[in-house]
């Protein structure tokens, strides 16, 4: 990175460190923090969407839809996330390619499963094998987002289901008495009010989501723990200009600080959000706010 870094073996102390910490490998490490943050930023709303869908389905008056909603939440939550991640991404990828294959290559006559191989026509490949590397990486990233969203969506569905039930029943009855249809009452009365009941559960879910990121490498995304292991391990002078012993402890300490800091910041933000949501609500918290203002 810096001009004086051409021959690291002659360097010492801080100059050595400044060169060491700016190698391409370290830049990948720093970039992985961005990857993880972006992934969290995309996964959280997606999971919420899945959760909302799941919760609405579980409350549906149409029986198959209700079974689907309840089955989704019950099954996905009963399985440890590692076990899920170990086979689910490949399955998801194959499912997408299978569907594309059916649409794009209806004339294809060879079987898709040949022995152990899973073969679809070239045009159905996701992404196309001619696509540049970044497309492949983005696709892998999106698959990881989707897998995370499906798992955490099941938890979110459970929280939202509880929150929908917690909205005072009288509110809904009043809405219907005013002539609102079932759909109107749901969207105008229940949905705006349920968030305050859901927030404690959802904020915990967010904390869990943060702490599930070390599992990202199972999904093919190079996360911060992967790079910390890779960089911290002993390196032989034959393979690097910066040989060192087992430094995993330092790297993991750095990660520990990152996670604790991230948790703390999240706690503060969520607390503010809770205050805002509580405003004007018929809960003890809302009552307390009203009294304090008066």
């Amino acid at each position: 990175m810096f001009s004086y870094c051409t021959d690291p073996s002659t360097l010492e102390g801080l100059t050595w460190l400044s060169c060491y910490l700016t190698t391409g490998k370290h830049l990948s490490f720093y970039a992985s923090f961005v990857t993880v943050l972006v992934l969290l930023a995309i996964t959280a709303p997606t999971a919420l969407l899945f959760g909302f869908g799941g919760a609405t389905a579980a409350r549906s008056r149409i029986a198959p839809l209700r079974w689907f909603g309840k089955g989704y939440t019950a099954i996905v939550r009963g399985v440890p996330d590692i076990a899920f991640f170990l086979f689910f991404v490949i399955a998801l990828d194959q499912a997408f390619e299978y569907l594309r294959h059916k649409v794009k290559c209806p004339d294809w006559e060879e079987p898709i499963r040949q022995g152990n191989d899973f073969i679809v026509c070239q045009a159905a490949k996701l992404p196309l094998s001619t696509a540049p590397q970044w497309v492949h990486e983005t696709y892998g990233f999106l698959l990881a987002v989707l897998t995370f969203a499906i798992v955490f969506g099941a938890f979110a569905a459970n929280v939202l289901y509880g929150a929908m039930n917690a909205v005072p029943h009288a509110q809904m009855e009043t809405a219907e008495a005013y002539g609102m249809s079932h759909r109107q009452a749901f969207w105008r009365i229940m949905v705006p009010q349920m968030w305050v009941y859901a927030l404690p559960g959802l904020s915990n879910l967010w904390m869990v989501l943060i702490k599930a990121t070390p599992l990202l490498f199972l999904l093919g995304v190079e996360d911060i723990v992967y790079w910390a292991r890779e960089l911290g391990g002993t390196v032989n002078p034959r393979f690097t200009d910066y040989p060192h012993g087992d430094w995993r402890l330092y790297y993991f300490t750095f990660l520990l600080i990152f996670y604790l800091g991230f948790t703390r910041v999240s706690e503060i933000v969520l607390e503010r959000l809770m205050k805002k949501l509580t405003h004007g609500q018929a809960t003890t918290g809302g009552e307390a706010q009203r009294k304090a203002a008066a």
Binding site: G24, H136, F239, T240
Partner: peptide, 19 residues
């Protein structure tokens, strides 16, 4: 596309440049 592990020196590993 060539798949490798990138964690098994000297066979395959990630060098200082991250390659």
């Amino acid at each position: 596309r060539m798949g490798t592990e990138g964690a098994y020196a000297p066979w395959n590993f990630v060098n200082d440049k991250g390659e």
